[in-house]
Computed example of a mutant assay.
Amino acid sequence: MTPCLRFVSAAILKVDGRGLNACFDVIHQLNVRTPADVRAMLEQGGAGLTNGTQLPGMVSRLVSELQVVNVERLLNSCGVSAEKVTAVGQRGPVCGREFWKQTGSATSIGDPAILAEATGLTVMDHFEQRDIAKGGSARGLDVLPMWLLLTKAVDSISARPKIVVRLDHSIELFYLPARRKNRPIPPIAYRQLGPGFALLQQLQTLCDTQPITQPVSAASVADLLGQLKLEEVAADSPHQVQTVCDAIVQQMPELLASSVVLNHSLETFWADSIHQAIDQHFPRSPEFAEMIVLGRGARREKLVQQIADKFPGVTVTTDVQRGWISGAVGASIAAILATLHVDQVSGNLPDLTGATAARVLGRITPGNPGNWRGVLGQMELAARQTMPLREAI
């Protein structure tokens, strides 16, 4: 389970098989809207975390209590007893990248002890920290679970890759090759294009104060954002996003003429950037079979159509068309990271994160004795199985 700033989302996954041969199916999903006061605290950087004035203890408790409510509602609504759940993967919103400059990573908001105590389930969280401990940046950590979620292990060599476009707080691209049974992980590509809706929301607050109504050309917007090196801006860094906003106000105030102008200009820029990045950085052969658009951008039909127009002949689908609610993919990724920990499979790809070695990710907070014994039993069973040398930890 994982919350974005708007929702606290949870999903129950059915897992068939183990490790890289496992098949994951989302069988139940649910989200709870984040209360306005909690969301305001998160948007302000976790009650002072960004400037180091105080630790986000209150925010962690509030988010964790929402997660408890979500887990209980989800189990009750689908009739699944807690005894049948192996573990909970917990990921919260991130805040405070400036405060944590020594690692280059933000801290995750949420208290696993509250979730474990209330539900009796073993909780696994802090997936990023083990990668950071080995010198990684933890960026691109969702690549492997995304690949496992959206591809099926097959024997055929004719299966084609997929492209995933996640248009949300930030814009991320995933190249997911076909998954073959009992084979090592093939090359998976990942590209981050900088802040998406994190930048749009910040700029929308400035639109009403700008009376200029001059038209804006797509080329000029692309040139300016290219000069600002938007790809290097972290969406969870309020300072970096604010710096970009200040530069736009000074150099291109006409972009803020109205909310309509701003949305149209950024959507055009996003579609062009996505096409250019895929063309330049992802393998061209074999041709990819499908493009999947996730996140808030998937709910903008014009934006999805703009992206589809850039790739004629390619099937473009969204999480809405697949029946996934807001946040279900993020919650599923957290669950898969927890499953990889139980199966003792490394969850990071050093070539993407920059870590010096692959590691089993996550920190464990035991649930009640019965659930904890079940988790230990599965981890012991996984440890007895033979793994390829490149995956052994």
Rank of each mutant, 00 (worst) to 15 (best):
V261N: 09
P211L: 13
E267C: 14
R33K: 13
P215M: 13
M252F: 01
A22P: 11
G367H: 12
P177Q: 05
A113K: 01
V123F: 00
T34S: 02
Q250E: 14
P184A: 05
Q129C: 07
P195Y: 08
V32H: 07
A219W: 03
G89N: 03
I307K: 02
P215T: 14
D142W: 01
L349A: 06
D131K: 13
T268F: 00
D319N: 06
V80L: 10
P283A: 14
R160T: 12
D351H: 11
S156Q: 11
A153F: 07
A153T: 07
G367L: 13
V85R: 06
Y175A: 00
F24I: 12
Q192I: 04
D168C: 11
H169W: 00
G370T: 09
K181Q: 11
W100R: 12
N348W: 04
A113R: 08
G45E: 05
F311G: 12
F282P: 06
Q67R: 09
G313E: 04
D272F: 03
D309R: 10
L340H: 07
G330Q: 06
A82C: 10
V8K: 09
Q204V: 10
L255I: 02
A118G: 03
G52M: 00
R97V: 15
M146T: 14
T2F: 04
L230E: 01
G297I: 11
G347E: 03
N348Y: 02
V68E: 06
W324F: 15
Q29N: 04
E290L: 15
L149I: 08
Q202D: 14
G89A: 02
V15N: 04
V165C: 06
T151D: 08
D343P: 04
M252S: 09
V71M: 07
P93K: 05
L144G: 05
L262D: 04
V85P: 10
